[in-house]
């Protein structure tokens, strides 16, 4: 496993640290956290039978509180058959098509968001723990390259804002360090729950860059790099952000 330098480790801050007291309070209190509605939906989906196999997630995996504990801290994770890392959303859909004989859920659709929020919730409070082995490393490096590449009409890289200028203000809002500690999460600006890839699309649109499709390898590699970069930080799913 590759270690992050200690200095970077000490300086790392979650998006939570940049939020107003009111928004923090919304995340801290489950009854006020709107993301919990998606978690509840996810629980129902987990226990509902689906597909030609007429099987629920729970029929194989049992109680998610036990079986899914820690799972979301390890995604994206290398999949031997796909020969590349897959996101948690892609893992859910692999299970659906192969085990449940059901149609894959649409990226960013309510069901996939609900299921990933429910599974993510089972790791809330645990440290992010991406496993970096030889199989995964080339994809990590591809993600790192994307992070550092200047792109779009505004010719900006992720790093130029989120590493070189974090803490400063862009249009009045503090720039975070881009640690994806709470996805899927409820964003006030969206008035809904969204995935990390949706958030990445926001930045790409802002810099006038041609966005990647949901689930595209470039997106998963970038997600892998960002999650690995946040290794050891606490997972907050379902987080709340402005």
């Amino acid at each position: 496993m590759l270690a992050l330098p200690a200095s970077a480790d000490e300086a790392r801050r979650s998006g939570y640290d940049f939020m107003s007291r009111a928004t923090r309070a919304m995340q801290d209190e489950d009854a006020a956290n709107t993301g919990m509605l998606w978690v509840k939906d996810g629980e129902a989906l987990w226990n509902g039978k689906a597909g030609g196999a007429n099987r629920a997630c729970a029929d194989c995996h049992g109680d998610a509180v036990a079986s899914m504990k820690g799972v979301a801290t390890r995604y994206p994770a290398f999949d031997a058959r796909m020969r590349r890392p897959v996101s948690l959303e892609q893992r859910i859909n692999l299970c659906r098509t192969e085990k449940q004989k059901a149609t894959p859920l649409a990226h960013e659709g309510p069901d996939l968001l609900a299921l990933s929020a429910y599974i993510g919730m089972q790791s809330r409070g645990m440290p992010i723990a991406i496993v970096m082995d030889e199989n995964t490393k080339p994809f990590l490096e591809a993600g790192r390259e994307t992070f550092n590449r200047r792109q779009g009409q505004l010719n900006l890289s992720c790093a130029q804002c989120h590493e070189d200028n974090w803490g400063r203000k862009l249009a009045g809002n503090p720039i975070t360090q881009a640690h994806p500690t709470g996805y899927p999460l409820y964003r006030l600006e969206w008035q809904g729950v969204g995935s990390l890839q949706r958030r990445l699309r926001n930045c790409l649109v802002g810099t006038r860059t041609q966005a990647y499709a949901y689930g595209a390898p470039e997106f998963v590699d970038l997600e892998l790099f960002l999650m690995w970069r946040a290794n050891g930080m606490t997972l907050e799913t379902p987080a709340v952000r402005p």
């Binding site: 779009g152 006038r208 860059t209 041609q210």
Partner: peptide, 24 residues
């Protein structure tokens, strides 16, 4: 600086279709 070049269309990567070939 990192300030975008407002009158340049060359040397840019993955410019969104709506802005391709256009200066800012």
């Amino acid at each position: 600086s990192i300030m975008p070049a407002y009158f340049r269309t060359e040397g840019l990567i993955r410019v969104a279709p709506a802005f391709q070939g256009k200066t800012i």
